[in-house]
Design a protein around this nucleic acid. Structure first.
Length: 273
DNA sequence: CTTTTTCCCTGGACGC
DNA sequence: TGCGTCCAGGGAAAAA
């Protein structure tokens, strides 16, 4: 499930192959991908566009074109890219194929078909993201102080708030659990009750887990791999995610699983308070 | 305003 | 082996 570190790894892998390349031919195989827009129209609009930047915002991939238009891609659960000399027509999970002007194919795959491609005009990107995303957790704008204001009225479990993209853009279920372990914070604590010191720990924990994820090129559980097909290594670094019953690396207490924010949540009852 | 619930999808795990 | 059931989860939308 691509979260910020996985999307960043994919972005970095795609960038050198896409910069200055023109979309020569675009085929949208799965009409769900561009919903509610007509896939044929989107494909036609994309043909002839030249990529000038490959960026990431939260869990979104942002392909910027010379015309100022933007292709905003969200991989959701199982979306992935594969750079191939020639696309494999037999691949049942192939949802879109872009033929570049150098003859190579960029294949978009997605088992569960939750991913989305949205073509936006130059002035549409900022308003679209503004209502959905908060600060980049690895950016300078996110501080314990700014968090205090944002969380003041949030009585929901801390885990649910950490998953809120308007608070921490790009943090998903894996890195939320890992961040709370690093921060020694219990996932069911009401978010508004954190002390300034705990907020500082939360910011540090989130940054630590995300940076570790990027350094390990993301976590590969089942579907995820980067654009070259390589798996990530973050799964070997998990402190709590998926480890129920196993001992905490910090205090030895058995890791427990619960539910928070509608998501499976792993934590250590011994040292997360 | 915040919070919760439902839905979208598929494949893998598990019980019988 | 072959069913049926549950689970995984990001985010949109509706409901509370």
């Amino acid at each position: 499930m691509p979260e910020l570190p996985e999307v960043e790894t994919i972005r970095a892998g795609l960038e050198p192959h896409l910069i200055d390349r023109t979309f020569e031919r675009v085929e949208i195989v799965d009409p769900r991908l561009t919903r509610p827009h007509d896939p044929r129209e989107v494909a036609a609009e994309l043909e002839g566009e030249t990529v000038v930047a490959v960026e990431r915002r939260g869990k979104y991939l942002v392909l910027r074109f010379e015309t100022g238009r933007v292709l905003l891609i969200h991989l959701r659960m199982t979306g992935s890219f594969r750079l191939l000399r020639v696309a494999d027509d037999d691949d049942p999970y192939r949802r879109a194929v872009v033929r570049l002007d150098n003859g190579s194919d960029v294949v978009y795959r997605d088992v569960r078909r939750f991913g989305t491609w949205l073509l936006l005009e130059p002035d549409e990107l900022d308003p679209y993201l503004a209502t959905r995303l908060g600060e980049e957790p690895l950016g300078r704008a996110l501080t314990a102080r700014s968090l205090a204001d944002r969380l003041a009225r949030r009585r929901a479990p801390l885990k649910a708030v950490v998953l809120d993209q308007r608070v921490f853009a790009g943090v998903g279920n894996i890195y939320a659990d890992e961040a709370l372990w690093w921060a020694r914070l219990h996932p069911l604590r009401p978010a508004c009750e954190l002390t300034p010191e705990e907020l500082q720990n939360l910011v540090r924990g989130i940054r630590r887990s995300l940076r570790l994820g990027i350094a390990r090129q993301g976590a590969t559980l089942r579907d995820y791999s980067n654009a070259d097909g390589a798996a990530g290594g973050m799964q070997a670094e998990f402190r709590v995610y998926g480890r129920d019953g196993e001992p905490c690396f910090r205090c030895g207490h058995a890791i427990e699983k619960t539910r928070a924010g509608g998501r499976g949540t792993w934590y250590c009852p011994g040292c997360q308070n």
